[in-house]
Design a protein around this nucleic acid. Structure first.
Lengths: 250, 250
DNA sequence: ATATATAATGAATATCACTCAGTGACTAAA
DNA sequence: TTTAGTCACTGAGTGATATTCATTATATAT
């Protein structure tokens, strides 16, 4: 037994979590720490450049420990994404609740979505690249989270149709795609501009909602109520003159 | 000089390209072969799962040779993407040229884009994940290719505005984002459906163009000029009758 | 024919995701 | 308190893969 493996000595690291916590609580807080560390790395450096050892270091655990909590790098990324969706859905619901009209709700949702995905743009990588392809997307956590999130939009649209603010048109899922698709693409464009300002975001939001509610086609010069009333008044005045005329002659 | 490196013997591989070609031509055809091989792997297996050795094998060259033509895996992927954009732009221009109205042009462009990105969906990964982040996007080949491609859409819209089929609205880039963003998002949705049929594509295309041109909001029953003129004519006729009446009485 | 430039090669290296044999901490029963 | 058992953790080791570079092969010019 000569070249036996050297037994590793525990470094007696001070517990990060409160020592009095139960085992379950300690495990939970460690999971949170890992997700937080992963979130930070993923959002600042992107999926590919983020290494597991980096996450482990940030979270204050050994590399192997990550794999006790998540099967692999993708699963960890998915957990981060799930947490993001949860926050996103929550704030979206709250915000919509404070709006009165359908237009206000849509504008809030659009702005909220756009600002959020600009802030955490690196997370969207995960959706389009590895995460969606690695496993059966349908039935996954992310899929459910996404469903729950876009349901907020669906509800707004349903209400809008119900109270006549929106015309009941084609399949709902198409409008949903138009809404979220436009915003994600706009994000890319905004990020490419030298200084994407608040004004740009407002422009995108306004135009998108305008399109969803009013359309962008050249209207065929609809007459305004004002014009119509003036025209009617003139006719009215003419009729009165005629009435007077015939009354005098009678 | 005992354990000297064994000199590698060339395998005297039969030339793939015609031996009579010039040096320049031979290099070009090899580059094409590499891009073709990379395209095949990338579209079937995705970026991460595609290995450089796999591409080298498919292209019939050594692994090191790949790096004589492209600096790294990302650069190679970018070249594949550039070729894709080139084809896409070409076919888009040709197709639009065959359409008469703005609506037809937009519907063609939408369908063409959607069908193309569904067919080569794995290439889109590249845009959102590594490619865009690896280097300064602006000024890169991909950026220029993309500009050229979306210019086809811009031209259609400009024509549409010029001949009055489209209303001149907000910034053009916003409408562009709405167009392409909706289609890319729709692609995801379509791919998730069990059997995404031709009919689904048609529905998306129709609805998107309808939205861009006519809008989806509940119109407030605007009075048309035609209706107004008819109304005025009726009033006019009534006035004439009255005039005749008073003339008789005179 | 020889020299020079160009093109190609593949073993070696570095980096990273992931594994596993082993260590320590806590808990419950004796 | 002691002891056995389970849970949580560790980090060196493994295999896969992108990238490099010393070397060899081929084509062209003199």
């Amino acid at each position: 037994m000569s070249a036996q493996k050297k037994p590793r000595v525990a470094k007696a690291v001070a517990r990060k979590s409160s020592p009095a916590a139960t085992r379950r609580e300690r495990v939970q807080s460690k999971e949170d720490a890992i997700i937080a560390a992963a979130h930070k790395s993923l959002t600042t450096r992107g999926f590919t450049k983020t290494t597991m050892s980096e996450i482990a270091r940030k979270a204050g655990v050994a590399e192997g420990t990550l794999y006790l909590y998540f099967n692999n790098k993708n699963a960890l990324a998915r957990a981060v994404l799930a947490a993001f969706y949860k926050r996103l859905t929550e704030t979206a619901k709250v915000g919509v609740g404070k709006c009165a009209t359908t237009r206000e709700k849509l504008e809030f949702l659009a702005r909220h979505h756009l600002e959020s995905i600009i802030g955490e743009r690196r997370l969207l990588e995960l959706i389009s690249s590895d995460v969606r392809n690695t496993e059966a997307y349908e039935g996954s956590d992310i899929y459910k989270m996404n469903r729950e999130y876009v349901a907020v939009f669906d509800d707004v649209m349903r209400d809008g149709i119900w109270c006549g603010e929106i015309e009941e048109g084609a399949a709902q899922w198409i409008k949903r795609d138009i809404f979220f698709g436009s915003l994600e693409y706009s994000m890319r464009t905004l990020l490419m501009k030298k200084r994407s300002s608040k004004k740009d975001i407002t422009a995108v939001v306004t135009e998108l909602v305008k399109l969803l509610m009013d359309g962008a086609g050249a209207q065929f010069e609809p007459m305004s109520n004002h014009d119509l009333i003036k025209a009617v008044e003139r006719v009215d005045a003419a009729a009165i003159r005629l009435e007077r005329l015939s009354a005098v002659k009678m």
